[in-house]
């Protein structure tokens, strides 16, 4: 199956080359880096190192960047799109794990969860509490247990890509989009992965008020649970 790894990149000049080399070393999947109008040297590095990339002319935020990747994957007839963060949190050596259920045809969207085996980087207590709350909320709304709804390490088949191309939140998109996939009758499953502490860059959540984040994402999940997106080819 034709698989594409999508890497959203915003000011990741320190990590992007090492990450790309690591992916090349450990996997044979295609890669595309979505440069979200970085203000550092990311763009020049991507060009000079000959890393396949898409330069967004405007900063769209993480959601818009990842959505570009899904759009590109659809247009280029990829069967599977994998999302992998540009800061080195996700181990390219584990991509095959989250791709496997889709290749076997047992899932449409696979989330790499760090809380199934509880090994590797587990994030701060505050974040874990937030993630537990999302798990509770999604469980109440759908009856599905998603232990790591904020995980940006995911694999999607074409059905999910079409859904995300139509509708994808602009900021903090993961929990909402997981809910959207569930409410649109797609099979969502989790597989255990180990994550690493970020090697560069800053979390998109850190700078913002956690209260705003929790309210926005919770509302997003609730609204997504009521949405049925029509997909037309």
């Amino acid at each position: 199956m034709k698989t594409l790894i999508i890497i959203p990149c915003y000011n990741e000049q320190e990590t992007i080359t090492t990450l790309y080399d690591e992916i090349r070393e450990k996997t044979s999947y295609d890669v595309v880096v979505i440069n979200d109008c970085s203000t550092d040297d990311s763009r020049a590095i991507l060009r000079d190192e000959n890393i396949p990339h898409i330069d967004l002319p405007l900063n769209l935020g993480i959601g818009g960047a990842v959505q570009t990747g899904y759009r590109y994957a659809l247009q280029n007839n990829y069967d599977i799109a994998v999302q992998l963060d540009g800061d080195g949190q996700h181990d390219p050596g584990q991509v095959h794990k989250i791709v496997a259920p889709i290749e076997q045809g047992t899932a449409d969207l696979v989330i790499g969860s760090r809380y199934l085996d509880k090994v590797g980087f587990q994030s701060s207590a505050m974040r874990r509490a937030g993630i537990k709350f999302f798990k509770f909320l999604i469980y109440c709304l759908s009856g599905k247990r998603i232990t790591d709804a904020t995980s940006g390490f995911r694999a999607a088949n074409r059905g999910v890509m079409q859904l995300f191309e139509k509708n994808y939140a602009k900021d903090y998109p993961e929990p909402e989009s997981n809910m959207l996939a569930i409410s649109n009758k797609l099979r969502v499953c989790e597989v255990p992965v180990t994550m690493r502490e970020r090697q560069g860059g800053v979390s998109s959540i850190k700078a913002l008020q956690p209260i705003y984040y929790m309210i926005k994402v919770s509302l997003g999940i609730i609204i997504s649970s009521t949405m049925r997106v029509k997909i037309t080819d």
Partner: peptide, 17 residues
């Protein structure tokens, strides 16, 4: 408008690629 801008930006970037 922001939705349209989002789509336009993505399509331009992909077309350039």
């Amino acid at each position: 408008l922001s939705d349209r801008l989002n789509k336009l930006t993505q399509n331009i970037a992909i077309a350039k690629r």
